[in-house]
Simulated assay, not measured.
Amino acid sequence: MTNPHAPAPAPPATDPDFTPPSLGRRFGALVIDWVLCLLASRFFADPVRDGWAPVLVLVLEYAFFLGLFAQTPGMYITRIRCVAWSDGGRIGLVRALLRGLLLALVVPALIMDEHRRGLHDRLTNSVTTPAPHP
């Protein structure tokens, strides 16, 4: 049970001890989400022939899950989450959709800063953080 009187964690932007999750955990989450997207896209397209289908599902998955829950299923399994850089809250549906579109371009995710924030994170004011323990 969460202690309601415990101080709220500092937002990543102002936390001098902020440590981003490893690239392995982030990549693991992406692989899990990609497999789920491949499976889901089979309901309306052939993911081998129609390469756009799993990418579309991935973008929509990111918009829905990150916008509302701060975690995709892959992030939940690997115990990471995506929150707003400035206040640590959810990024919302519009920013999550933009983040998913930028992630689908791949290159923005490869250009990272010292906090492992890719261009897709910086442009949407988001950051991937370790998920708090339940």
Results as ranks from 00 to 15, higher is better:
residue 52 W to V: 09
residue 19 T to H: 01
residue 36 L to R: 02
residue 93 L to K: 05
residue 114 E to V: 14
residue 9 P to E: 03
residue 94 V to N: 09
residue 2 T to W: 04
residue 112 M to A: 12
residue 116 R to E: 13
residue 95 R to A: 10
residue 114 E to R: 15
residue 109 A to M: 11
residue 69 F to W: 08
residue 6 A to Y: 07
residue 130 P to A: 04
residue 113 D to Q: 08
residue 59 V to I: 14
residue 45 A to P: 09
residue 65 F to D: 10
residue 1 M to G: 10
residue 90 R to K: 10
residue 68 L to H: 15
residue 53 A to Q: 05
residue 120 H to P: 00
residue 83 V to T: 07
residue 115 H to G: 10
residue 111 I to F: 13
residue 55 V to F: 10
residue 60 L to M: 14
residue 10 A to W: 03
residue 73 P to E: 07
residue 112 M to Y: 05
residue 29 A to G: 03
residue 52 W to G: 10
residue 94 V to W: 14
residue 75 M to Q: 14
residue 69 F to A: 10
residue 70 A to V: 04
residue 44 F to H: 07
residue 21 P to D: 03
residue 24 G to K: 07
residue 32 I to V: 15
residue 1 M to C: 07
residue 74 G to V: 09
residue 101 L to I: 14
residue 16 P to E: 01
residue 125 N to G: 08
residue 9 P to I: 01
residue 123 L to C: 02
residue 50 D to P: 11
residue 13 A to S: 14
residue 24 G to T: 00
residue 40 A to G: 12
residue 26 R to W: 00
residue 42 R to N: 11
residue 19 T to A: 06
residue 36 L to G: 14
residue 43 F to Q: 13
residue 125 N to C: 06
residue 3 N to D: 15
residue 9 P to C: 03
residue 125 N to A: 07
residue 34 W to H: 12
residue 19 T to G: 00
residue 52 W to F: 06
residue 127 V to I: 09
residue 13 A to E: 13
residue 94 V to K: 15
residue 83 V to W: 04
residue 15 D to F: 09
residue 75 M to K: 15
residue 50 D to E: 13
residue 114 E to I: 14
residue 112 M to D: 12
residue 134 P to Y: 07
residue 26 R to G: 01
residue 10 A to E: 05
residue 45 A to H: 06
residue 16 P to I: 00
residue 127 V to H: 14
residue 7 P to Y: 09
residue 92 G to N: 09
residue 110 L to H: 05
residue 13 A to G: 08
residue 102 L to V: 07
residue 22 S to P: 00
residue 57 V to W: 04
residue 72 T to K: 04
residue 91 I to P: 05
residue 130 P to M: 01
residue 20 P to E: 06
residue 65 F to E: 11
residue 16 P to F: 00
residue 88 G to S: 06
residue 72 T to N: 03
residue 30 L to S: 13
residue 126 S to N: 08
residue 79 R to F: 01
residue 51 G to F: 10
residue 7 P to Q: 09
residue 46 D to M: 05
residue 23 L to V: 12
